[in-house]
Structure formats: structure tokens, C-alpha cells
Lab assay of single mutants.
Amino acid sequence: DHDVVPEDKFQETLHLKEKEGCPQAFHALLSWLLTQDSTAILDFWRVLFKDYNLERYGRLQPILDSFPKDVDLSQPRKGRKPPAVPKALVPPPRLPTKRKASEEARAAAPAALTPRGTASPGSQLKAKPPKKPESSAEQQRLPLGNGIQTMSASVQRAVAMSSGDVPGARGAVEGILIQQVFESGGSKKCIQVGGEFYTPSKFEDSGSGKNKARSSSGPKPLVRAKGAQGAAPGGGEARLGQQGSVPAPLALPSDPQLHQKNEDECAVCRDGGELICCDGCPRAFHLACLSPPLREIPSGTWRCSSCLQATVQEVQPRAEEPRPQEPPVETPLPPGLRSAGEEVRGPPGEPLAGMDTTLVYKHLPAPPSAAPLPGLDSSALHPLLCVGPEGQQNLAPGARCGVCGDGTDVLRCTHCAAAFHWRCHFPAGTSRPGTGLRCRSCSGDVTPAPVEGVLAPSPARLAPGPAKDDTASHEPALHRDDLESLLSEHTFDGILQWAIQSMARPAAPFPS
């Protein structure tokens, strides 16, 4: 592969990997390779389809078979030569091979799209000592099968071997295949498990690692696999990028399955594409389908809103127990993405979901129960707010008499603000006073009005108090039968009158 990737590009890729991570280095090298001529790309395919690569990765054979028959990708048995050289000459001794072996032994695996480039050397060096003999053996194999790289107009793939297949390693990572398949204008990513390549439709969760975000852009890794992070704060999961590491605690105790298979379609829109997988259930989501939507993949363990709600429900009964003089119970939860139609709101002032922060849900004790107040519409209280300059209440639009249902020339009671006709409430011909108009209920007259088809109010509507207090003497005590009587009149003013009279009014101040 030294004929494909020059030394300066190799060093530039290593520097970019240390600065921005393996995914960015892979993407940059792939983009550079696509700008080369067809001879360089053909050399790339020839390096990929060597015999030892085909033996190690069985899924490469179907890719090789898909090439046109007129494309010669065979390799000479006596060494490598550029395709432009007409004579089959043995190339001179390859010093770059020693360079590659020494550099890969030092860096474990470079971040390139060629056999030198995919593992994360920093994480491997940190986690190597417990498994040094086995990992050293794996390093000797890295130059042979560490990076199976493929690129063409139909298929483009980048393979990364790992030393996680050490025997006896619980939940060992089998390997990473960062794979971009450009077929019919689409893009897919796969993962390699035990020599087999699994596409998103049959993606397997190998051991402790999972394909957290099938994305090839942005600074985030394709698999949430930063070796420096180790395990999740809650004892979460091992990262795919942690090559040759000792077994780590796999999943939280509440995880239903340690080796679950995540779905390959969004649980909201039932469509495929780039998904984020939940650590607590097999569901996966688009970032845009979450509520609120996320802009980037959160670091650490992530769970959907259903799993978060289940966790909150487990903690909430203990938080609601009476604990005198104790601060509110704080339950730190990872930043969760909410699927459509589901929402768990945190306290005000918290950062938005999706940031690399930890939301704190506070379970406050329930407030003391209070008697429910009568629910009145805002339009129902409008007549009470229509007060004239002299303190006389004006008529609201649409006000109707509670007896006849007519809204023409209605009066407004100064005591309960109900609309009424003087002739309907006082049919006996009582003279109307000039000021202080009161309806039949507030004036103490319980004589029913002779209106055909309208039920008369119940005599129990009024329960006047002592006459010594004029204001308190007109406080009506309405009961269920009074409400039914008012409802039978089918008037809004009657219902409003009952609601206003049912509310307690402050006692009249004593004259000074």
C-alpha cells in the first residue's frame, strides 16, 4: 500500500487522527484517494484483494465477484509491481515495509483507509498491559489484515481490525468495519463480527460495544468508541475503539438485554438511515425525530424517553415518601432524547437536551391539597369587569335574561352582576328603583315568574340570613337542586349567576 499512500500523506493522516480522531482521518484520506487517478484506485483494489485478505475476510469475495470481468485485479505471486511496468521484474528490497512494521508496532494501528489505518492507538496503548502477550500477537497480524480498504464507483468500504477477539475476553470487541457502500446513491455502514460483515439490516451488537450512531460526518466517531472515555459513568459499556482492553462492566443492572439487537429503522417514522440506538431497549431513532430533536450524538450512555420514564417511576415512589426537613431528592440522569409524543421536562434553567451534561430531575413533595375552585371561562368573567365610571356595571355583549332568554333592554344586578328583565323577575308590577337594581334572587323575592315553557326556580334557592346585616342577608345558599333548576333554563347567565354566588365573597367592612 506504500505505492498507493505516500509517506507524507501517511504522516498527515496520523497527525489528523491524533488531533480530530479516526473518523475524520478516514474521511480525509478517502476524499484524497478519490481525487487520484484511476491507476492509484486500481492499485488500491489490488492491494485489498490479496489472497491473505480474501482468506481472512470471507465477505470480500462477493465484492470481488461483483467487479466487471474485464477488470484485472489479480496479484502476481513473485511480488508487487506497478501496473504500468511491462516487465515482470522483482521490485527492489522494500524498506517501507520495515517502516510500516515499526510504526504500526509503535502506534498499534494508524488512522488511514489502508491496512495502516483504523484502530485507535492511544486507547490501545492505555489498555494494553493486562493483555500484552495476546495483543502483541495481534499486532503482528495487523499489517496483514488490519485495514481492508475498498473503493469503487459501486462499493466503497473501509475495514478496521481490532485485537478484541482475544480468547477469554468477556464481551470482547470482535472488530470495527467502517463501511461506506455507495449503492444507488445511498450510504450504509456496517460492522465486522468474527470475520463476517453485518449491514444495518442485520447488524449484531457484538459483546459490549454497539453501533451508536451510523454517521460518517462530524467530529463524533462512527461508533461511540473513545478509548479514553473507558466505561460509562454508571458502569455503562465498553467502547469499540478500545482495542485489546480488559473486560469492562457491560450494562447497567436495569438493562433488559446485554447482547440485544437494535432495530435498523426509526421507532417514530419507521424509516432507515442514520440512527441513534438506545442503551436500554432495542429501539433506534433519527436525531430529527426525537422531541426535542438533537443536533449531535450525546457522549456516554444514552437512553430513550421510555427508558428514562421507567427509571424515574422506579425512583419516584421512594422520593415521595414523607421525609421531614430533607432537601428534594435529586436523581442524576443521562441526557435523554425524547421520541415524538413523549416529553420529560427538567427543571427550568437546565441546558437543552443533547448537550454533554447531566440533567437533574428533582422530585419535590406534593403540595397540600386544596379545595378545587369553580372553573370559569374568561368570557364568563367579562360582565364582572365591565364597570362604568360611576361604579355601575355596563352590559356585556350577548347578555340575556335568565328567565325569558331575551337580551333586549336587559338590566344588570348590582349584587350578582346577572342580566335580567324587571318585568320577568317582578311581574307583579313592583316599581323599579332608580339605583341599586337587584334581581329577584338578590332582592329576596322568590315568586316564580309566569313564563310559559320555563321551569320556575326551586323555592330553596334563597336562604336569607339575619336582617340586621343587609349585605350578609342576601347571601344565597345554592344546592344541587338549585343548579339543576338553573340548568333547565338553558341560559348561560343562569349558570354564571350560580357560579358567582357559589364563590365566597369577603364580608362587608363594618362602618367606622
Score class of each variant (00 low, 15 high):
332 P>E: 14
245 S>C: 06
308 L>V: 09
373 L>T: 05
284 A>Y: 04
292 P>G: 11
453 G>W: 15
409 D>Q: 10
310 A>T: 12
319 A>K: 10
431 S>H: 12
398 G>P: 10
302 W>T: 13
331 T>V: 09
288 A>C: 09
423 R>K: 02
465 G>W: 15
452 E>Y: 09
497 Q>P: 04
503 M>A: 02
431 S>K: 12
396 A>Q: 14
373 L>R: 10
323 R>D: 11
330 E>L: 14
288 A>T: 09
422 W>P: 14
350 E>F: 15
446 V>N: 11
451 V>S: 08
390 E>V: 13
465 G>L: 11
255 D>N: 07
365 P>M: 07
328 P>A: 10
400 R>S: 06
478 L>Y: 13
254 S>E: 07
265 E>T: 03
279 D>K: 03
457 P>A: 07
468 K>V: 06
505 R>N: 01
482 D>H: 04
475 E>W: 08
490 H>D: 06
427 P>Q: 07
413 C>L: 02
296 E>L: 12
344 V>M: 09
333 L>I: 08
312 V>L: 10
257 Q>A: 09
279 D>N: 06
398 G>N: 08
267 A>P: 11
319 A>L: 11
359 L>G: 09
369 S>P: 11
376 L>N: 04
261 K>F: 04
366 A>Q: 03
406 D>N: 11
359 L>P: 05
337 L>E: 00
324 P>G: 08
454 V>Q: 04
394 N>G: 10
361 Y>E: 04
487 L>I: 13
438 R>G: 06
437 L>C: 08
343 E>V: 13
496 L>S: 01
241 G>A: 08
287 L>M: 10
328 P>S: 13
380 A>L: 14
315 V>G: 10
494 G>S: 06
388 G>W: 14
378 S>N: 10
326 E>A: 07
289 C>W: 04
320 E>V: 12
500 I>R: 03
282 P>N: 11
262 N>F: 08
282 P>L: 09
251 A>T: 08
320 E>C: 13
455 L>F: 12
242 Q>N: 10
407 G>Q: 12
249 P>F: 05
441 S>T: 03
402 G>W: 09
425 H>N: 06
400 R>W: 14
368 P>Q: 12
470 D>K: 04
502 S>Q: 01
348 P>W: 04
284 A>P: 13
273 G>K: 07
507 A>R: 02
377 D>R: 04
499 A>Q: 02
440 R>S: 07
279 D>M: 03
260 Q>W: 14
279 D>P: 05
352 L>W: 15
298 P>Q: 05
409 D>R: 03
472 A>K: 07
270 R>F: 15
371 A>P: 13
314 E>Q: 09
389 P>V: 04
355 M>K: 11
258 L>F: 12
343 E>D: 03
303 R>V: 07
342 E>S: 08
264 D>S: 08
445 D>V: 08
428 A>D: 06
